[in-house]
Design a protein around this nucleic acid. Structure first.
Lengths: 331, 331
DNA sequence: CTGAAAGCGCTTACAG
DNA sequence: CTGAAAGCGCTTACAG
């Protein structure tokens, strides 16, 4: 495979001149440039990414650190990954996948091996140990998720608090005074899941303001458990006939349970929820809902990381992506 | 950040000796080795992956070429990606994500830029243009999917033909003489989807042998369409009361339709299907089924690619991963 | 506007 | 068993 020297020889110029047209950093006369471009085409030359990386100390690749939790059921993960990769490519960056069970070790290794110019951490928790090696080293990174303490690292996520407020408002505006809050299992909050906590807090705060009573229904993991829990909650006549759902598994299972019990929405039951577009695409879900926005979040993350790489000492940013309410006749 | 020269100085040896302990390719006396290891620890040295890649012409990274088709609904994609990355890491390889809409271009660029030592192509079609640059260049690669003509490239996939045969046998053994074959939309077969075609052919062939009549029900894309199509098919009394399903979207939607029509499995309807473990995890699906095996397929793909990299001229392999039948009381 | 030289951080024959 | 030297394929001051 041709190298820069072959091109230089073919074009009758020096290697540095070829490099100048490759990088575009220096003026090269149109004639010379044309000769070089011909030579490149003729030899099917293509710059060796690794050699360039060594010379510039820029790998032009970002690492994406995935925390893959079987239990946490995330059909949106693939969407995030593809969106991140597409957005990165648009900025000239490749994307490397870091999936080790020990995420902290993955982060350390990526930094130490200079394999990437920056890191994107998916699904960040409160107290996430993956932040340690980053805040120690000051390595460029952005968190997807919004921990209580981002430790001086850029962070971006959907505005789950705003989403909760929107849904509560929607219920209140339709005259509801109480609702079951179908939420994640306790373990998820305990583990530090920031989206679960942000949604929950905002939901209660806004419900207080609007005089809406919230009855919490934690839904355990696993399809059978989800079904049983929902069925029990809906079968109990003491419970409100209105549902505020933040739990994808529950959203997916709900139609089964409605049919189990012979219930109709909105005749027998009112429903609003926050769920992923993946679910909305799989089913005909006719609930008023806030959809999560993986593509927008991914694009913002890449943009922030590019800025951070360019300006390592700038102040850390937080960015919340505004959700949008999809109104359907479910309340 | 320390480099190999710093380590050599600290340990009082030459850079080549440090390199010897790094690569493990040469004997180094225990004393010298110990001194070097101390120096490495003290300086927190870590080899620069890019520099090593330049020196060895081995990047130790594989590229994974994703064909992301909104329509094709693949909740298993994330599982594949994580499994591939994990398996690669185990062999010392990193994984780079290639998601460009123009997959052929992505392949060309990855090869030309020497960014990867090998390529894994996901979701390969018959006549897939991404094979062109690979078979032209002889670049190490493995296909996930089993095209009619793999063009001399290694390929691996679930054995969809065997899966079809198993399910047909299961029906026949339970005395069924006819079944609706709920399958993918025509476009998918036309586009060259190899798994769809392999399953279909084997299903018909085996059904012939076993004297089972198959009534095809192509299911279009989109939740509303899936639901309507299934409902119409099940409502038609002329259709068999037995279902052979190869379509994840239909599997996911089926319970809704059963409830729409007030049908029960197996009382009113017999069902067998091939579907992904992702679906099985989301719902309480109580159909006898063959589950796809993304993790096993991914592991095999990585293993084959490692072999290919080591032995570029060896004969191309085809590998089919045996499916396993999960018996449940649905027939 | 163009080129010669040094350097990025490794590995690998080769010599001793 | 260890080291000096060349080389991998680029880029980037620097000189002209």
């Amino acid at each position: 495979m041709a190298n820069i020297g072959d091109v230089a020889r073919e074009a009758g110029v020096s290697r540095s001149t070829v490099s100048s047209v490759l990088t575009g950093r220096k003026y090269v006369s149109p004639q010379t440039r044309a000769r070089i471009e011909d030579a490149i085409a003729k030899l099917e030359y293509s710059v060796n990414t690794g050699a360039r990386a060594l010379a510039t100390s820029k790998t032009m690749t970002f690492g994406v650190v995935v925390r893959f939790h079987e239990a946490e059921f995330s059909p949106a993960l693939a969407t995030y990954l593809v969106a991140l990769s597409d957005a990165a490519r648009e900025q000239g960056y490749a994307v490397m996948l870091l999936t080790e069970a020990d995420g902290t070790e993955a982060v350390r290794r990526a930094i130490a091996g200079r394999q990437v110019d920056g890191l994107i951490l998916l699904n960040v928790l409160d107290g996430d140990p993956r932040l340690d090696p980053i805040s120690e080293s000051g390595f460029p990174a952005v968190l997807v998720g919004m921990p209580e303490d981002p430790r001086g690292i850029d962070a971006v996520d959907l505005d789950f608090a705003a989403a909760a407020a929107m849904l509560v408002d929607h219920l209140a505006e339709h005259g509801h005074r109480e609702a079951m809050f179908v939420r994640w299992p306790d373990e998820l909050y305990a583990a530090g899941s920031t989206y679960a906590t942000r949604f929950e807090r905002a939901a209660y705060a806004r419900a207080d303001e609007r005089g809406l009573r919230l009855v919490p229904v934690p839904v355990p993991v696993g399809p059978a458990q989800v079904r049983a829990t929902l069925r029990a909650a809906l079968a109990d006549p003491a419970n409100p006939r209105t549902l505020l759902i933040h739990n994808d598994a529950a959203v997916a299972m709900l139609p089964f349970v409605l049919n189990d019990l012979g219930l109709e929405v909105p005749a027998d039951l009112r429903v609003v929820s926050l769920h992923s577009a993946e679910l909305a695409g799989l089913y005909v879900l006719s609930f008023t809902a806030v959809e999560s926005k993986p593509t927008a979040v991914a694009a913002a993350a890449v943009e922030m990381l590019c800025k951070r790489v360019a300006e390592p000492r700038a102040e850390a940013q937080k960015r919340l992506i505004a959700p949008r309410l999809e109104r359907k006749a479910s309340v």
